[in-house]
Design a binder for these strands. Structure first.
Length: 123
DNA sequence: ATCCTGACCCAAG
DNA sequence: GCTTGGGCCAGGA
């Protein structure tokens, strides 16, 4: 018979069927909500857009969309910069220019974490 | 259809 | 703190 469904599998079934088009649109909308001086993680953006478990795709979009979005405001878990080499330096520089402070290698999340408002759904 | 890749994430050690 | 292994998912070859 059917094996017990894991919590993750259950979640996956609840999540809206992935359509890259509207998914990316949702990601873009969320990313644009992040104000100057604040940041959000890939996972938070994905979840806020209605697609938990799609954090990797947020990164994929950012790479593709590039300059059309405030890409520097999306960081890794814990405020880590996930880009490499020069790109990483550029992101850090851009963020510092917006007033974001770092603690070692990570963004000071206690101060710069952006909180998304769940009720601002607006279709 | 299979294999590989990625601006990820997290629990362990 | 850092590294590692396993898990995740869609896209491209």
């Amino acid at each position: 018979m059917n094996k017990k469904m894991t919590a993750r599998e259950a979640l996956r079934k609840l999540v809206r069927a992935p359509k890259s088009e509207q998914r990316d649109a949702a990601f873009r909308r969320i990313i644009r909500q992040i104000p100057r001086g604040k940041v959000a993680t890939y996972g938070q953006v994905a979840a806020a857009a209605g697609y938990p478990l799609y954090h990797r795709h947020v990164a994929q979009l950012l790479r593709k969309a590039g300059g059309a979005l405030p890409w520097q405001r999306v960081v890794g878990s814990g405020g880590a910069i996930k880009l490499k080499y020069e790109a990483a330096l550029e992101q850090r520089t851009r963020l510092e220019f917006e007033g974001v402070r770092f603690r070692g290698k990570h963004v000071d999340m206690a101060e710069h974490q952006h909180r998304f408002r769940p009720w601002e759904f607006e279709g």
